[in-house]
Amino acid sequence: MRILICGSMAFDTIMVFGDRFRNHILPDKIHMLNICFFVPEMRREFGGTAGNIAYNLKLLEGNPVIMATVGDDFSSYTTWLEQHALETTHIKQIPGTFTAQAFITTDQDDNQITAFHPGAMSECHQNSVHDAQDIGLAIIAPDGRDGMFLHARECHEKGIPFMFDPGQGLPMFNGEELLHFIEMAAYVAVNDYEAQLLLEKTGLTLDDIASKVKALIVTKGAQGSTIYADGKLYEIPCVKATQVVDPTGCGDAYRAGLLYGIAQGWDWPVCGRLASVMGSIKIASRGAQNHLLSREEIQNIYSQVLVDETLSQHIAEETRA
């Protein structure tokens, strides 16, 4: 099944400051701040919601179709996508713009100062879902405001079930607008903070939202995730990672697992476990697209997770007895 991934493509420039911001920012001088941080360590990563989700779907041997807008500086990213056999047909270059990018400076306490330039992402409404053929499933991930509205409406008009994933774009919309997205969507995916914000803006409860879609997915980091579907609540445990290196892109990896499971017609516990496996694989690698596993390796990890869960349940039952 061809899965349309509507979202951002971005470069992430990460710089590491070898001290603490608080040692260099004087509280009584905030009104006249003029400071320079020496950052001897720097790296540039490929990112963006659409790029990250598509990359993880490809690892699962899914069939992602990226729809995004990019700038004149995108050539190195194009090469990366082609090296990983990711389709670029619906990635539109906007002349005279930069690709969206984040400049992130991190100190020794893991505090961050981030500057984000949306660039070509703001023109994502120049793409149309109607131009993509044979799409069976879609996701509307964080992107330009106008484009998110347009692509959700076009998916709805074409009868393409889509997952609404507002992410960091959620503050752009008021309650009425978010309700409209929910009414059109087949699935809604948010983290626990975004879930609370969504409830505050719409005045709905989690059960209210779940009743309007096929499934509501709420991720909770190390506490796992919860899937509200079929009138039931599925608690999905977190999968322990081999090591915790970098959480950047974990949510996108999780969503790729969900989309793959939905496309296969799997039940929600299976979809949720696969999504958790994808998140655990990602967090063990620096950057959002540097983990490289075959589908067979992912399947082996998933199988081991099932064995571990069964063993844990057996031990718990024996303890209670």
Rank of each mutant, 00 (worst) to 15 (best):
I3V: 13
I14K: 15
M15S: 12
G18W: 00
F21K: 07
H24V: 15
I25P: 11
P27W: 04
K29S: 13
F38D: 12
E41M: 15
R43H: 07
E45V: 09
F46M: 09
G47E: 10
Y55G: 12
E61L: 14
G62A: 06
V65C: 02
Y77S: 07
T79A: 08
W80A: 10
W80N: 08
E82G: 00
Q83W: 13
L86C: 04
L86G: 03
E87Q: 14
P95L: 02
P95H: 04
A100I: 00
D107V: 02
H117R: 00
A120D: 04
S122N: 14
E123P: 00
H125G: 02
N127D: 01
A138S: 02
I139D: 09
P142Y: 14
G144K: 11
E157P: 03
K158H: 03
F164Q: 04
F173A: 03
F173Y: 11
G175I: 05
H180P: 00
E183F: 05
M184Y: 02
A185L: 13
Y193H: 08
A195K: 06
L204C: 14
L206H: 12
A210S: 10
K212H: 15
K214T: 06
A215Q: 03
S225H: 09
T226I: 14
P237F: 12
C238M: 13
T248Y: 10
G249R: 10
Y254V: 08
L258T: 09
A263Y: 06
Q264H: 14
Q264L: 15
G265V: 11
W268G: 11
V270N: 10
C271L: 03
G272E: 08
V277D: 12
A284L: 03
A284W: 04
A284H: 03
S285I: 00
G287D: 07
L293I: 03
S294K: 11
Q313Y: 07
E318Y: 11
